[in-house]
Amino acid sequence: MSEQTGGTPLGDSPTRTDAELLAAHCAGDPDAFTEIVRRHKDRLWAVALRTTGNPEEASDALQDALISAYRRADSFRGDSAVTTWLHRIVVNASLDRLRRRSVRTWVPLPDEGTGESPATLVDDARLADPRAAAESSETVREVRAALDTLPPDQRAAIVLVDLEGWSVEEAAQALDCPVGTVKSRCFRGRAKLAERLAHLRNPDAPGPVVLPDNGAVTTDGEGGAP
């Protein structure tokens, strides 16, 4: 792994921040960029996989994105965290692939009872109750099917905001659109997901999704969309 190469002195700590590593990369350190990616690879993978809905495409999108980021690291201007910048590039590479796919194909799922694909690491192993495991697996299948029906832009907004926990503002930067557009896409995407997954709903659970006239999704007690 990389050594310190002219970055900020860190005393006894051999670890550098992402920003320091990116600076080292720009200064010619051959290992610095890989170290940044190593730190955040799981999250980058999650974004690519959830956006494309396909492990192979996610892998290809990630490679394309990271090579692009590697080559144009000097375009990073420091107005966001390094990892945010990286995620933006990965999201856009994933969206490019998603948009190029003229006909959506269903994500191959593992055969029943024969284990999981690399992307199907869900709760099953944690659940001792076979029935609960089966229900969880079925839920995952349903969720993926529902996500797969969303238009790419809505899907990306849902992935970033509702699955990855990004702020609407960060998502807007990543998706290069106004904040209100991200909200709108989330509203509409949520509404579609709620509709498609309604059969999974627990009738005893609070906070059912309602769909006001303006199309925004709210929960009980929220009083409708702003």
């Binding site: 690879k41 799981d42 980058l44 993978w45 999650a46 996989l49 959830r50 492990p55 690399p118 992307a119 199907t120 690491l121 869900v122 709760d123 969880s136 839920t139 995952v140 349903e142 969720v143 993926r144 849902i158 905001v161 509702d162 699955l163 609407v168 909200k183 989330c186 509203f187 949520r190 997901l193 709620a194 997954l197 999974l200 709903r201 627990n202 659970a205 609070p206 906070g207 059912p208 999704v209 925004a216 999704v217 709210t218 929960t219 929220e222 969309a225 702003p226």
Partner: peptide, 22 residues
């Protein structure tokens, strides 16, 4: 503001954690 995500929808989405990069 964007309203909070419906709890059951949040649960369904969270059930599909992609896991670490292969």
């Amino acid at each position: 503001d964007l309203p909070p995500l419906d709890p059951e929808l949040a649960a369904w989405l969270a059930a599909d954690a992609p896991g670490p990069m292969p």
